[in-house]
Computed example of a mutant assay.
Amino acid sequence: MLAGTTESFGENRDIWLAKTGPQPHISISTSFHNFGGVAVGDSATFIVTLTNTGTAPLTISEIVSSAPYYTDFEDPVSLEPDFSRDINVTFRPDTSGLFRDTIIIYSNGLEGPVLVVLWGGGSLEISEEANFLPINFDLQCYPNPFNPTTTISFDLNHPGMVKLNVFDVTGRLVSTLVDDNMIAGEHRVIFDGAGLGSGIYFARMEAGSQIMTRKMALIR
């Protein structure tokens, strides 16, 4: 019985050692990007940086996207530890409207496929009357409580300047998530509380003359 137990432990140890040896890890510079409004027939591009933060070679085998979002990724790429590769992501709308999509990045990293959520709008003509309408919106956080990330979503009834900040209970600014002109429609941003202590935080959004605050709980 003792010999059998020792053999079983040895097998488990070998498996454990194999899993804790050199491994590739993929890190991305952002998991969300909002292109804002882009004129139909025109295009806008931003860069996603992929980094191997592991200890073994990382192979990026495929990046899946769909129109009107395009990438310049063609062939599999191998990255040594601590090396990076920039991928150009282009939004090229051929019709007006709001476009939401996700590009999927496949690799041999332990994290499995990683996602980048994309938002963009083919520009629409907006009447002068509409520009004077108040910007109404709804602000939500999910999950809440969270650890360490939560998705903050908001829905605008028409385009306008938006500011979205996160504060702690003392009123100290923790993070500025949005400070830009945004198109009408639903938007989502990720708040990452890594490096912050457990406690209560507040997401405060300003859009036009409207202000809304949501309480969030970071629980570790």
Results as ranks from 00 to 15, higher is better:
I28V: 11
I87D: 07
L156G: 13
E7T: 14
P93L: 01
S127Q: 00
L50C: 14
A184P: 15
H33G: 08
S65P: 11
S8A: 10
G54E: 02
I211E: 13
F202V: 15
D94H: 00
F9M: 06
T30C: 08
I152Q: 01
I219H: 00
N12W: 00
H187E: 05
P57R: 00
V166Y: 08
L164R: 14
V89T: 10
I15W: 12
I105R: 09
H187Y: 04
F154W: 12
T213R: 13
Y142H: 14
F167L: 09
S61F: 06
T213D: 14
F35M: 06
T45M: 00
I104N: 09
S27K: 13
F154Q: 07
V162Y: 13
W119L: 03
I26A: 03
G112Q: 06
N88P: 13
N108W: 02
I28Y: 01
G54L: 05
L196C: 02
E206M: 02
G195P: 15
G37S: 02
T20S: 11
D72L: 02
S96E: 01
T170R: 05
V116T: 07
F132V: 12
R204N: 12
S65E: 01
G185S: 08
S153A: 11
D192E: 08
L118I: 06
D138L: 12
D42Q: 13
F46E: 08
G10Q: 01
E128P: 15
G195F: 06
N136S: 08
S27Q: 14
N165P: 00
F137W: 11
G36F: 09
F137A: 07
L118A: 12
F167E: 06
F35S: 09
P24Q: 11
F32K: 11
K163P: 03
N136P: 11
G109C: 04
Y142S: 03
V64S: 08
L177R: 10
Y70W: 06
L50P: 15
P57Q: 00
P145K: 04
Y70L: 04
D86K: 15
M205W: 02
S29A: 06
I26N: 08
V114S: 01
T49H: 15
T95P: 04
G171M: 00
H158K: 14
A130S: 14
R172A: 09
A194G: 09
F9Q: 11
R172Q: 11
S175D: 09
R204C: 05
P159V: 10
M216H: 09
V48C: 00
T102I: 10
V162K: 11
G193C: 03
